[in-house]
Each structure stands twice: as structure tokens, then as C-alpha cells.
């Protein structure tokens, strides 16, 4: 059995705690976010949900810590203010890298 954890601003964390995620870390700046991520990775949490804004700010740190292992999954979600369209862009870039042509469906 694996655990789910959430890193985000106070509203996001409150919401997900209501939804039944036991581990939530409220972060206010990049440094805290990095520490939170490290802590969760050390605890071997297998699903980490993180808001897109925070993830964008600490992108390098995430990539450095994650590598290409199967676990943990880091899932980026929009926060309360809505989607930043980052997810779709990333996908399009990936497809371009793999196939070599732009294919936006």
C-alpha cells in the first residue's frame, strides 16, 4: 500500500485533506517547497500531488531528484486560480520530441 501526499498552498492542502489525503504540506516559498519535496521523497511517498505554480518554480529541483524511476509519481495540478496551460504545452513539446513533427490534436 502506498501513500498519497500533497504539496501546495493552504487552500489546496485543506481541500485535499478534506478529500482524504492524510499528508499535506503547506508551503509558502520555493525553499519550503524543496524541503517538503525532499521530506516526502525520504518518506518514500509514492504519489506526490503538487500545484503547477510551485512545481514550475522548483522544476530543476524536481527533475534532479526524480530521475526516470517508476516511483514516485509526481502529479501536477492547477491550484485555485485555475490552470496555467502548462500541462498541455508540455505534452505538445513531448510529442514533438518523439515524433519529430508538431501534432496538436
Amino acid at each position: 500500500m502506498s501513500d498519497v501526499a500533497i504539496i501546495g498552498d493552504i487552500d489546496t492542502v485543506t481541500g485535499f485533506k478534506l478529500g482524504g489525503v492524510k499528508k499535506g504540506i503547506i508551503v509558502n516559498n520555493d525553499e519550503e517547497a524543496k524541503n517538503a519535496l525532499d521530506e516526502l521523497l525520504n518518506d518514500e511517498i509514492s504519489i506526490i500531488i503538487i500545484t503547477q505554480k510551485i512545481a514550475d518554480n522548483i522544476r530543476e529541483h524536481i527533475n534532479k531528484r526524480l530521475g526516470s524511476d517508476v516511483l514516485p509519481m509526481v502529479i501536477e495540478i492547477p491550484d485555485k486560480s485555475g490552470s496555467s496551460e502548462g500541462g498541455a504545452d508540455q505534452m505538445a513539446a513531448l510529442i514533438k520530441r518523439v515524433i519529430g513533427v508538431e501534432m496538436v490534436k
Binding site: 485543506t14 478529500g19 482524504g20 504519489i47 509519481m73
Partner: peptide, 19 residues
């Protein structure tokens, strides 16, 4: 009050990750 309520919510999700 919402935060207080959130603190007492029980864990709802069990995930089993295989590959």
C-alpha cells in the same frame, strides 16, 4: 473551521502501485 474539519478527516484512498 474548514481547516479544523479537514484535520480530522480520515484517509480515504488506498493506492496499490504495481508495474
Amino acid at each position: 473551521a474548514v481547516q479544523k474539519a479537514a484535520l480530522s478527516v480520515k484517509e480515504s484512498v488506498k493506492v496499490d502501485i504495481s508495474s
